[in-house]
C-alpha cells in the first residue's frame, strides 16, 4: 500500500489523462493453475479518446475493461481513473456487453433510465424528474438511435439489434465520462452493425466520452477508434499502439478507401503473428 502511494506521488496523474494503468498485472486462479491474464501493462488514455482493443481471445482485453470499470482489482500495480485510484470514486461508468442484459421486468424506458436512478447528480432528483425531465431525455436518446416510440415496449418484444440500441442508450443516458463497450455489436448482422457504428460515432461526437471498445472486428475498430491497441495472449500484453486519424465523421465509404483497408490488413497480420507465437510457446 505504501509503495503504491509512493509510486503515485512520484508520477502524479495528469488531469487530461482520464485513465492511467501503471505496471498492472492481473493473475487469475490459485497457485498451480494460476495464469497471468494481463502482464505488466502501462497505459495512459487521454480524456475524450476512443480506444479500441483487438487481439486473439483470452488476451486480456476484457480484463483491462474490467480494471478501468472498477469491477476487478489489479494483482500488482495501480489503476487511476479520473486522477484517483479505482474503487475510491464513483464516477458512474457506462457499460455495455455483447449480451444486451436488459432487465425483463422493466420497460425499455425504465431500463434506459436505470443509470439516472443510481448515478449522481441525477439520483437525488430521480423521484421528481422521472416522469418529466428524465423521461424526455430518454425519449430523445431513443429517438437518436432509431428506437423512438419503443419506450413502453418490453425487452422481449424487441429484436437483438433493437435491444443493442437500447443497451447503448442505457450506457450513455447519464453522459458518462467513461464508456466501456465489450463487443457490443458482436452478435448482430453486418448491416445493423454498420448502422450502429455510425450511431455510436454520432453519440461520441455529441457527448465526447472516453471510450474503451473491445472488439474482434478490425473494420469496426478502424472505423470507430482514434487509437487501436493490439494485444497478444498468454500472458496478455499490448504489442502495438496505433493512431487512427481518418477525418470525422467517418462514413461507410471510408471503410473502402485504401488507407483504411491497409490499416485493417496490417492489424490482421499483427494478430495472426501473435496467434502463431502463442502456438509456438504453448
Amino acid at each position: 500500500m505504501n509503495q503504491q502511494s509512493a509510486a503515485a506521488s512520484s508520477s502524479p496523474p495528469s488531469r487530461n489523462r482520464i485513465v492511467q494503468l501503471e505496471d498492472v498485472r492481473v493473475r487469475f486462479g490459485a497457485d498451480t493453475n494460476a495464469f497471468l491474464a494481463l502482464d505488466k501493462t502501462s497505459l495512459t488514455v487521454e480524456a475524450g479518446d476512443f480506444v479500441a482493443m483487438v487481439g486473439p481471445s483470452g488476451c486480456g482485453k476484457s480484463t483491462i475493461l474490467k480494471l478501468v470499470a472498477g469491477l476487478l482489482r489489479p494483482t500488482e500495480g495501480v489503476v487511476f481513473v479520473a486522477g484517483r485510484e479505482i474503487g475510491a470514486q464513483r464516477i458512474g461508468i457506462g457499460m455495455a456487453f455483447q449480451n444486451p442484459t436488459m432487465l425483463p421486468w422493466l420497460s425499455i424506458r425504465q431500463n434506459v433510465m436505470l443509470p439516472l436512478k443510481i448515478v449522481e447528480p441525477y439520483s437525488s432528483t430521480y423521484r421528481i424528474h422521472k416522469n418529466t425531465l428524465f423521461r424526455d431525455r430518454v425519449e430523445a436518446l431513443l429517438e437518436k438511435v432509431g428506437l423512438g416510440g419503443f419506450g413502453d415496449h418490453r425487452p422481449w418484444q424487441l429484436s437483438g439489434g433493437m435491444l443493442q440500441r437500447a443497451n447503448l442508450c442505457r450506457a450513455l443516458i447519464h453522459e458518462p465520462k467513461l464508456l466501456m463497450l465489450d463487443e457490443p455489436f458482436g452478435a448482430l448482422d453486418q448491416f445493423t452493425r454498420e448502422e450502429l457504428w455510425s450511431i455510436l460515432q454520432d453519440l461520441w461526437i455529441d457527448q465526447r466520452p472516453t471510450v474503451f471498445l473491445v472488439t474482434h472486428d478490425l473494420r469496426e475498430a478502424a472505423f470507430l477508434a482514434n487509437r487501436i491497441l493490439v494485444m497478444s495472449s498468454r500472458p496478455g500484453r499490448v504489442t502495438e499502439d496505433r493512431k487512427v486519424d481518418f477525418a470525422r465523421p467517418r462514413t461507410l465509404d471510408t471503410t473502402y478507401e485504401k488507407d483504411f483497408t491497409d490499416l485493417t490488413h496490417s492489424l490482421r497480420s499483427l494478430i495472426v503473428a501473435a496467434k502463431q507465437k502463442e502456438k509456438v510457446t504453448s
Binding site: 474490467k66 470499470a69 472498477g70 469491477l71 470514486q89 464513483r90 464516477i91 458512474g92 461508468i93 457506462g94 457499460m95 455495455a96 456487453f97 449480451n99 442484459t101 432487465l103 436505470l114 443509470p115 443510481i118 448515478v119 442505457r170 447519464h174 466501456m180
Partner: peptide, 17 residues
C-alpha cells in the same frame, strides 16, 4: 447473471442498490 450486476456496479451502485 453477473453481466446484469456488472452494469450497475460499473455505475458505482452499492451492493444494496
Amino acid at each position: 447473471e453477473p453481466e446484469m450486476e456488472d452494469v450497475l456496479k460499473a455505475l458505482g451502485a452499492s451492493r444494496w442498490q
